[in-house]
Simulated assay, not measured.
Amino acid sequence: MSTSPRTRALAAVEASGLRHKVVEHGPVRSLEEAAAARRLAPDQVIKTLVVRRGEDDYLFVLVPGGRTIAWPRLRELLGVSRLSMPDAGTARDVTGYERGTITPFGSTRAWPVVADARVAGRPVSIGAGEHGVSVTVDGSRLVLVLGATVADVTDPEG
């Protein structure tokens, strides 16, 4: 019997030893609604994006709400000339999570993690494998537990 994505994600958070608070809420249609439901500022809501580096080579990028990947800086950090975002089906295949629920915790493969420098140093919320479910954690502990490379890899959206 396979476990649900939510069960897998929360079990992985628990196994990591990371102190966390599970937050559940109904459907949200925007970053602002997600932040309000989680009682955090929008920039404390962390998006986990899957980036393709090469053939069967992916990584997770943790991006604060209201920000977007700064592709030139991320390529420079990784020492590559090309990166891309996989389609939703590929992202699901390589993580076990559908887009909008992706988290490094409990992913079907343990891809490397790059965290934007703004993740550390404050409480943040990260997805937990199912729409409307997240965990609030200390951002500094999050990057430590995930073994993330921390760098300035985002720009403000717009």
Rank of each mutant, 00 (worst) to 15 (best):
P86S: 11
I126Q: 03
D93F: 09
A151E: 11
A110R: 12
F60Y: 07
A117R: 13
S140L: 05
V150P: 10
P5H: 11
S134V: 13
L40V: 15
R6G: 02
L62Y: 03
T3D: 15
L59T: 02
P123I: 02
L142R: 01
T154P: 01
W111R: 01
G89H: 07
V143N: 03
R6T: 08
P104D: 06
R73L: 08
G65S: 05
A88F: 06
R141N: 03
D138E: 14
I69P: 00
R92H: 14
A120D: 13
A88E: 11
A148H: 01
T136E: 09
L142H: 02
V80M: 05
G129T: 05
V124C: 05
V45K: 03
V61G: 00
L78E: 09
G66F: 05
S16V: 08
P64C: 13
G89V: 05
E98L: 10
G147M: 08
G26K: 11
Y58T: 00
L59V: 08
D43H: 12
K21H: 13
V114R: 00
P72R: 14
G54A: 14
A120I: 02
S2E: 14
D56I: 03
R8W: 14
S107H: 07
V137T: 02
V94H: 09
G132M: 07
V153Q: 07
R122Q: 15
T154M: 08
T136D: 13
A151G: 07
S16D: 07
A120M: 06
T154N: 09
A110M: 06
R67Y: 15
V63Q: 04
A11N: 11
A117I: 11
R52V: 07
S125L: 14
M1Y: 09
W71M: 05
A91M: 11
D93T: 10
T3W: 14
V133G: 03
W111H: 03
L31H: 12
E130W: 12
A35D: 11
V153K: 03
A115Y: 01
G100P: 09
D87L: 08
G66C: 06
S125N: 11
A11R: 09
A11Y: 04
L59R: 01
L31G: 13
P104Q: 06
V45Y: 04
G121Q: 04
S30H: 11
